[in-house]
Design a protein around this nucleic acid. Structure first.
Length: 435
RNA sequence: GGAGAGGUGGCCGAGUUGGCCGAAGGCAGCUGCCUGCUAAGCAGUUGUAGGGAUAAAACUCUACCGGGGGUUCGAAUCCCCCCCUCUCCGCCA
């Protein structure tokens, strides 16, 4: 009855600023008809809600009278008849009200976040804007190979057997390859916890529906998720989901903010609709490892936090001496829940292009509304929604790809970046036949 | 998997012959008073969401006692379904 356990776009904001919502939808190349549905149903919903509340007040009054008369031993039959009548009216109207609430809620849940004013306008990834570059391009005296070929020649990546075990887009890592993946995870976690101020968490790798709705994967993108048979649980597509939902339905204290979490998890994605794309190699897998950064911040500081979060992710690439660039995603290329996103793209000489290795976003209060995460201001005011942010710090498999391609030698061996050697038991180079 | 117990406000915890319960009491918090500091003490106050009213308040209405449905004029209290937590047994990394 008028309770919104699932927040989303602020219903009041949507109602009172329809032009802004429409503008946002257009910028994102979304069909604006969902919003028309919303407005229409929301209007009706409000009228009905008012009617139900009035009747309820009337009914409450009569019920009170009945109680008093009853105690005085007087006859209440007439009042009961009247009350029954009102009660029936309420039931009828409520049924109708519920339908409208359902419609409003469903419409609201599939309306994306409103882009921040600083987000570049555009339709596709071609319209993204490069912000800066980091590191320097590697020089090769030979033609660099792709990571898949490098990995197979070294015997550290086995795509054939990966697909024997689980099908396309699964890979078996072996020997120094498995070690390198594990080393990268530890290296990244240590950097973020020891140098960047994040607290490590290790969440469940599958979550319930409420979590998925909270961060925006549901209800719109269910076809991208692996669902557990016979259970309303899903394998996580990113640690963002369980980690952001840590504080679902909670009210934090202002002093606790900002909160920085980092988490290693595997990620599971169906990659529906990407048939034929990146079928070779490690770039696009159904299961991959990622170290994630998640922040809970006050609204006033969330954009500063986004800059710092992005630079925390960049630091990993700097330590590994990999060349990269940071791009600001345009309105048409941004994810559903995001208000602003920076992608970090690492240079892959084997493919002669930049590939996304991290995506850092400020969701403002979009996820916080859905997941109902608030904080109580110190001055005693009403609880406010927090701002949530997250970014990869980094995608581990793609980092391994970058190392193989950037550190490959003419003889097919691969040097280990210096900052990683401690994590590789001192290994300096991966050669054929190692481990 | 089997057998029990329970889910109430920031926390603890009353309330199950239906009405006076948004909900006693305690703790914590806040505001005054008082005590030369601290502790104690006295009085008041302190939930969330939506609507109305207002310059803003005061004020007022509706809903919320794990979730959903039912009975009833009326449900935290009765009935049904689901979820979760805890204890014991079994099983297992």
């Amino acid at each position: 009855m008028g309770r919104w356990k699932i927040g989303m776009l602020d219903i009041k904001f949507a109602r009172e600023n329809p032009e802004k919502v429409v503008e946002a939808l257009e910028k994102r190349n979304y069909d604006i008809s969902v919003f028309d549905d919303f407005l229409e149903n929301e209007k009706e919903r409000k009228v009905l809600l008012g009617a139900v509340e009035n009747h309820r007040r009337e009914l409450n009054e009569i019920s009170g009278k009945i109680d008093i008369l009853r105690k005085q031993g007087e006859d209440t039959a007439d009042l009961k008849v009247k009350a029954k009548d009102i009660s029936n009216t309420i039931k009828t109207q409520e049924t109708s009200l519920n339908e409208y609430e359902e419609k409003v809620k469903n419409a609201l849940l599939i309306i994306p976040n409103i882009p921040h004013s600083s987000v570049p306008l555009g339709k596709t990834s071609d319209d993204n804007v490069e912000i800066r570059k980091g590191g320097s391009l590697p020089n090769f005296t030979f033609t660099p190979r792709e990571h898949g070929e490098i990995g197979e020649r070294l015997g550290i990546l086995d795509f054939e057997r990966g697909s024997k075990l689980a099908g396309a887009r699964f890979t078996l890592y072996k020997g120094a390859g498995a070690l390198l993946e594990r080393a990268l995870i530890n290296f990244m976690l240590d950097a973020h916890t020891r140098e960047n101020g994040y607290t490590e968490v290790l969440p469940p790798f599958m979550v319930n529906r409420a979590c998925m709705t909270g961060t925006g994967q549901l209800p719109k993108f269910e076809e991208d998720l692996f669902k557990i048979e016979g259970w309303d649980h899903f394998l996580i597509p990113t640690a963002e989901v369980p980690v952001t939902n840590i504080f679902r339905d909670e009210i934090l204290k202002e002093d606790e903010l900002p909160i920085y979490y980092t988490a290693y998890t595997p990620c599971f994605r169906k990659e529906a609709g990407s048939y034929g794309k990146d079928v070779k190699g490690l770039i696009r897998q159904h299961q991959f490892n990622k170290v994630e950064l998640v922040k809970f911040a006050k609204p006033e500081t969330s954009y500063d936090e986004l800059e710092r979060l992005t630079s925390d992710a960049e630091k990993i690439l700097q330590k590994l001496k990999l060349h990269y660039r940071v791009v600001a995603l345009c309105t048409g290329d941004m994810g559903f829940s995001s208000a602003k996103t920076y992608d970090i793209e690492v240079w892959l000489p084997g493919q002669n292009k930049y590939r996304e290795i991290s995506s850092c976003s400020n969701f403002e209060d979009f996820q916080a509304r859905r997941a109902n995460i608030k904080y109580k201001p110190k001055d005693g005011g009403k609880p406010r929604f927090v701002h949530t942010l997250n970014g990869s710090g980094l995608a581990v498999g793609r980092t391994l790809v970058a190392i193989l391609e950037n550190y490959q030698q003419e003889d097919g061996s691969v040097l280990i970046p210096e900052s990683l050697r401690l994590y590789m038991g001192g290994m300096e180079k991966i050669s054929k036949g190692d481990l």
